[in-house]
Design a protein around this nucleic acid. Structure first.
Lengths: 223, 223
DNA sequence: GAGCATTGGATAGCGATAGTATCCAGCAAG
DNA sequence: CTTGCTGGATACTATCGCTATCCAATGCTC
């Protein structure tokens, strides 16, 4: 297919597609002449993945590139791919290690991981991410108690087990891998949205007086 | 205290503090002369909150502003504050409603919320957020099954109940409110980090190095 | 096979975001 | 009285993620 068709089918401007090719997110089309190239379904699928990672996952271009590079690399196994994705998602703001409070927070994290006997690499970005949150909470005068943390840990385990269990290793690698990436990034958004909704619900029952005690208004739908 | 002290204590450059004041994130110091102003602990605390929301929550300045404005407004109750925070967090990428697939995704979301009898406002941004994820999943050929969703819903409820239960309504409003905001934004990061860690753990056990059969991962791991 | 639209490839520009840097003048304390 | 730190204003910068423009070579239509 032509680039204009690719554009129509993906919903992305031709210029953006060109940009993605320049950035190495999308392979070039098969050149049929100096000013002509042929694109196929793989391009379209890749474009859809990029779109999902950008629009839903809100990943920067550089992160998307790292992910698709790993997806395309047949020598990368499923578990390593997960690692790549998590590095790409990483903590958006890098911590600076000279901070004394940082060291403490990071040690708290390491202690928790050790106690849970989780197989998490020592330099996994998730450790930094968690430590950063701990540090911020401490600085705000909200110390982390393990009992406070328990429900989060249980929820995390519940979900992770479900997710990894849902990955089917059958079929061709490309499909499996794309599914794994999408699950990781998109269901994270699903989880976040559901948590916020549940929060609103529980909060409404507890503090909300404005909402009538009856059912949520049915007909009041709309934007 | 002087602005330079505030800078030292908060770890933010003086120029950045000035910038935050310009943007309305931080109130001006009490002017003692034309070129002198006095800052107090409230300024420091606010700065720490801003820092946490920016660095951990990764919120744009405009969102932080909306949040602190609500925090400062005594007429805003706890539940409404939550709403403000959720609007500020919102879906980063706005959906365009003309898409036909969007309508369907959004209806799926509304149906789920209705079935769960959750008290979520009809125009809550979380609905759009979830619909966006649904739409992206569908476009990638990964339809959403309710059984797939169950663990997420259960986890969300588990966490939300724990969180809202932890909010103490006693004490002065300022503290309560700051705690509520911090809980919302920072523990979201905690949850995300924990989920990713748990994923790595489960994945390591399943696909990790000690792989027995199937495809041995070619150690070309992280970046 | 003439003519017009479309492409690939390259380069330049743009708008938003989040700060930095500079300048100026008024104080403040030694 | 001098030194150096403010507050306030304005200007500049860097990064990101696209857009826009240009050009020459095609392809497609008639």
């Amino acid at each position: 297919m032509k680039v204009s068709e690719l554009s129509d089918l993906s919903g992305l401007p031709v210029q953006t597609i060109k940009y993605y090719i320049r950035e190495g997110l999308l392979p070039k089309g098969a050149a049929t002449a100096a000013t002509r190239a042929e694109y196929d379904d793989r391009h379209l699928e890749r474009l859809r993945l990029i779109k999902a990672l950008r629009e839903v996952g809100d990943l920067p271009i550089a992160s998307v590139k790292r992910i698709v590079t790993a997806v395309d690399d047949d020598s990368v196994g499923l578990h390593d791919l997960l690692g790549t994705v998590q590095y790409a998602l990483g903590p958006r703001t890098e911590p600076h290690a000279e901070d004394s409070g940082w060291q403490a927070a990071r040690q708290d994290v390491d202690a928790i991981v050790a106690e849970l006997r989780w197989r998490v690499l020592p330099d996994a970005p998730t450790r930094d991410m968690l430590a950063q949150a701990f540090l911020a909470l401490r600085r705000l005068g909200l110390p982390i108690v393990l009992t406070q943390l328990r429900p989060y840990i249980e929820a995390a385990i519940l979900i992770a087990e479900h997710e990894v269990g849902a990955v089917s290793v059958e079929g061709e690698r490309g499909k499996t891998v794309q599914t794994a990436v999408a699950t990781n990034v998109l269901y994270e958004q699903v989880l976040i949205a559901l948590r916020r909704m549940a929060q609103e619900d529980v909060s409404a029952r507890r503090f909300g007086e404005a909402a009538d005690s009856g059912e949520p208004p049915h007909g009041a739908g709309g934007p």
